[in-house]
Design a binder for these strands. Structure first.
Lengths: 193, 193, 193, 193
DNA sequence: CATGAATGAGGATTCATTCAT
DNA sequence: CATGAATGAATCCTCATTCAT
């Protein structure tokens, strides 16, 4: 029972990721999501307040999950450079493993709707913090330049990966992005030095 | 007067940039644009095929303008490094001078609607080509590493700037971005080396 | 305890009177009534056929009760005038003691839904009959004018009381209506003479 | 043009009176009103803010009209008794001439929805004032008892007529109500004496 | 009998687009 | 060309009712 309910929540959430990822928020109809989740339209409203709440929840749940796992991935690593590489790998892996989620994050991150963006962006900040902490650490250990601007470095880190994923998503997701990881890593290392 | 002489096409286009920039494409109503342009709803359809065409035209006209001017800016410069710096400056200048346009480009670049996105991205490619040519040139002149992946370098260039602008736009456009130009430039130089 | 022993049928019925009285039939949700009665939504359907049936039952049960008690009140009175006064008193007392019920009767008596109204009005006729019998009796005893139109007299009796209660209900139920009883009684006596 | 617009507003208003009168506010669908008025659904929203606004406007326009005409009817009459009779006649005439409007007034006057009722009741007060002024005048001229409670007299006047109309409406509108006018008038005269 | 999650039909409202003036 | 009233398709959400547990 508990399980079943959990199940339905996740089913709707994943259906929403798929549908919103493919059609975009505004073109994703509640009916589409309901059909994809194999529930009635009304059932969605037993789990979400309204359509917007679905989007916000996707960001909340999925980014939380992402950040927690990213933290775990680098937890036992000492070298900040190695941490950076793992973060790149993880970013690319998650996005290429979940292209629909990638699309939702790519696309709907840029909502102009103020309230919505605030809610959505809030969840992203935790990820930014993880990146910045690694960069800070690298600075302290003299691995990165003491003059490196942490904020800009993080923008470069996220911006570059985001753009690479974005291009990948918007060109049919055919390329194998793992091939670029080492090159991206090298560029970051040099840039941060 | 000056304002009245400005032809209607431009008035509508600029009104659309303002409204779409602030509300996003889907929340921008034709009526909003008409009011902003001080024309009747129907008049818009004498200049544009439909709502989508307005967005496509913004990208077409404004990116064309942008690319042409960017080309001019670097036309008389010989040093690829200097060209890179000018491109950064120009990118930042245009976006901070036209925040509404910046928002439209930022936001609607990630159109989920496939056909629309294809039309919109098409115009961006010319800008990408300009960047890539500068990088290529730098490689040839041994200013950038011969092993530099041009595609990735361009992704880093555009992705980083895009992210910096995006953060600026979405945090209230208060910061003075020109202060970052030199730092960003230095990071690119190192990364491309 | 006392409250818990009160059987569910009555709990639901009274909850319905409260909720429908405050929100009106169409704005009263089954869930509201269920919450007020402290039962599950589905439980209501073990005691009532459907939402409409609740309203019909309120009229049936409460008006039956009302008419029976009204009859008892005047059973041992001989003077038709005195009976009239008691009926006025009783009408005012019941309605002011049960403002939620008063609201339901006031409001839903005017159901536009034909079938529903027929069912609802049917129960009112017994009350009309009681009033008319007292007036008839008064005519026979030469206490009221032999030319008095019984139907109109009853309309005046009920219409006036209904309007007085209605105004009272819709102006916040602050006034003390018992102060008006004698005056209303006097006006009826004169009108019926 | 002006005329045409005026026309459409009235067409929708009258269609709404007809449909709401027959089905009640909650069962009257916007589509029903649109079909009856021979306009598109959306057109209604060019003239009214929303569904509720239609109802409120009916009360506002029609009661204003009613009160103005009622005032005119009694403007040249000196005898308060005669004024009372004319008011009765006029009330009955308007309601029997416009049974759909009568139903709307009868039925929707008792909405429990607080905000709605406030708006609706506000328009009724002007009619109450007219009645009360006539009764006041009758008291001053010693035609009605100096002890007559004006408020109660007005409640009786309106309540009785309202109930008579209500019964007429709810029993198929077959009876000829003009036959009752003299009798009602006589009862009021006696009651107010 | 009691529960409350699931259902899905139904409807008010929005808004891009048209076209008569 | 300009207008803006009219259109009507499209969709989010509500809520009475059911039924498996």
């Amino acid at each position: 029972m508990e399980n079943n309910k959990e199940n339905k929540f996740e089913r709707i959430l994943n259906a929403a990721i798929k549908v919103i990822g493919n059609k975009g928020f505004h073109n994703a109809k509640i009916k589409d999501i309901a059909v994809e989740a194999d529930v009635a339209d009304g059932t969605i409203y037993n789990y979400f307040q309204n359509k917007e709440d679905i989007l916000v929840t996707i960001f909340k749940i999925k980014l939380e999950e992402y950040v927690n796992n990213a933290k775990k991935e680098i937890a036992n690593i000492i070298d900040p450079k190695e941490k950076l590489k793992v973060l790149i790998k993880y970013h690319v892996k998650i996005m290429t493993d979940n292209p629909d989620l990638a699309k939702v994050l790519q696309i709907e991150l840029r909502q102009p709707h103020v309230e919505l963006r605030v809610k959505v962006r809030k969840n992203l900040r935790n990820y930014f913090r993880v990146i910045e902490e690694v960069i800070e650490e690298g600075k302290k250990n003299n691995i990165f330049s003491p003059e490196l601007d942490v904020y800009l470095a993080r923008e470069m880190f996220f911006g570059t990966l985001d753009e690479v994923i974005s291009t990948w998503v918007f060109t049919g997701m055919s390329r194998d992005l793992t091939l670029y990881i080492d090159k991206i890593y090298d560029m970051f290392l040099k840039a941060f030095n």
